[in-house]
C-alpha cells in the first residue's frame, strides 16, 4: 500500500485516495472547434508510461482535494505531490 503525501493533510495511506489518471492531460476549452483526432487524444489515448509519471489522485476519505502526484509506475516511488492549482514543472 502506497504512502501518499497529501499537500493539505500530510502523509496518508493509499486506501484514503482514489486514482484519477494522467495529470498532464488538459481538457480542451469549452466551445472551441477541435478535430476528431485531438478530441480522441483527450478522451482515450494515454501513454501508459513506464517510469516517472504525473497523475491525479483524490483524497477521497480526507480533505476531498484532487492532487497531483509524481510517481514511478514501475517502482511506485513517489517523488513529489502538488495541490490542484499548482503547475507541474
Amino acid at each position: 500500500m502506497l504512502h501518499i503525501k497529501c499537500p493539505h493533510c500530510g502523509i496518508r495511506s493509499q486506501n484514503e485516495f482514489s486514482y484519477g489518471g494522467d495529470a498532464t492531460i488538459k481538457r480542451p476549452e469549452l466551445g472551441k472547434e477541435i478535430s476528431d483526432q485531438d478530441w480522441d487524444n483527450f478522451v482515450y489515448n494515454r501513454k501508459s508510461l513506464r517510469g516517472k509519471h504525473w497523475e491525479l489522485w483524490q483524497h477521497l476519505s480526507g480533505c476531498r482535494q484532487w492532487i497531483k502526484v509524481q510517481r514511478d509506475t514501475a517502482t511506485h516511488e513517489i517523488f513529489k505531490t502538488l495541490k490542484a492549482n499548482e503547475e507541474i514543472s
Partner: peptide
C-alpha cells in the same frame, strides 16, 4: 460529487 469536485478544482478553478 467527485466529478463536480474534479472540474471545480482542476479544470475550471
Amino acid at each position: 460529487l467527485s466529478h463536480l469536485e474534479y472540474y471545480l478544482q482542476l479544470v475550471w478553478p
